[in-house]
Amino acid sequence: MTTLIKLEIARALRNKMFLFFSVIYPSALYLLIAGRADHTPMPGTTLDMGLYFMVSMASFGAMTAVLLGNSERIAKERANGWVRQLRLTALPGRGYVAAKMGAAAAISLPTIVLVMIVAAVVNGVRLEAWQWLAVLACTWLGSFAFAALGVAIGYLANADTVRPISMLVYFGLSFLGGLWMPLTVLPKWAQDIAEWVPSNAYAALGRAVEAGSAPHVKDIAILLGYLVVFAGAAAWLYRKDTRKA
């Protein structure tokens, strides 16, 4: 499994377009949105634009790496026969799924770090040392749920349909997760739905730390619940695909 993780990371690093959109693009978006922000709190929050969008763009970039990267790569690997070759090795199904999640999460780490560096250096964001570390840990560990979702979509869709499906899920989660704007500006029915969406709980972890408190138990529970569901779905779809092969 370790060998496969190293191989997956090496393959991702060779894809310059993927690296741009998953690592550099979120930081560029952060500067575009919050580069000249003042310290006025965002609607419905105690965080200013610099803090609010630091977590938003770090989460957005991590989701790009683990969700889009996993889903499209797996669908293409199924089409070209690479997954079939892996099944001939001693690697178990759970090892394959875990390797895909681990490799994607490793790629997401530079994305999160770069957004945080840009926020601190360019936009003057200031936090206590423990807050920087906690925001990094929450944003990185939380991305595993979306890595599992990416694996599931990669086995649910084929090479022709994976991109529209993954993009629809990706932008839907970004919107309902409050990554583009505070949820308080949305209609009440949308806020009620967003309260149970994994991306909202994901971003809420880092924002709670920025506000000086620990992540809420409800958000942690929601994200862990989705991780179990997505990982279980990915494993089931992998086994189903194996029976077809």
Score class of each variant (00 low, 15 high):
133 L>I: 14
148 A>K: 07
174 S>A: 15
174 S>E: 04
166 S>L: 00
173 L>V: 02
130 W>C: 07
137 A>G: 02
151 V>R: 02
144 F>S: 03
147 A>E: 04
131 Q>N: 12
154 G>V: 07
163 R>K: 10
144 F>E: 02
171 F>P: 11
178 G>Q: 02
147 A>V: 07
138 C>N: 12
129 A>Y: 03
133 L>P: 00
142 G>V: 06
148 A>T: 04
176 L>F: 15
135 V>S: 01
144 F>W: 14
170 Y>R: 07
139 T>V: 15
130 W>V: 14
167 M>E: 14
147 A>N: 07
152 A>C: 01
146 F>N: 03
131 Q>I: 13
177 G>P: 06
136 L>I: 06
132 W>H: 08
149 L>I: 08
171 F>S: 10
132 W>N: 03
153 I>F: 06
169 V>Q: 09
141 L>Q: 02
172 G>Q: 13
156 L>N: 00
153 I>Q: 14
160 D>H: 09
161 T>S: 15
138 C>E: 13
144 F>R: 07
135 V>G: 01
170 Y>G: 04
137 A>M: 06
148 A>C: 09
171 F>Q: 12
151 V>A: 11
141 L>F: 15
134 A>P: 00
148 A>I: 09
171 F>Y: 15
173 L>A: 03
170 Y>L: 02
153 I>C: 08
165 I>E: 07
171 F>T: 10
172 G>Y: 12
145 A>H: 01
173 L>I: 01
129 A>P: 01
166 S>V: 13
153 I>V: 15
161 T>Y: 05
140 W>K: 09
163 R>L: 09
158 N>P: 05
148 A>N: 07
133 L>G: 14
159 A>R: 10
139 T>W: 10
131 Q>S: 14
152 A>P: 00
149 L>N: 03
173 L>G: 03
163 R>M: 10
143 S>H: 05
155 Y>T: 03
141 L>T: 09
155 Y>S: 01
130 W>K: 08
156 L>S: 00
167 M>T: 11
159 A>I: 04
161 T>N: 14
137 A>I: 10
158 N>L: 10
174 S>V: 03
151 V>H: 04
146 F>C: 06
143 S>I: 13
150 G>R: 07
144 F>Q: 02
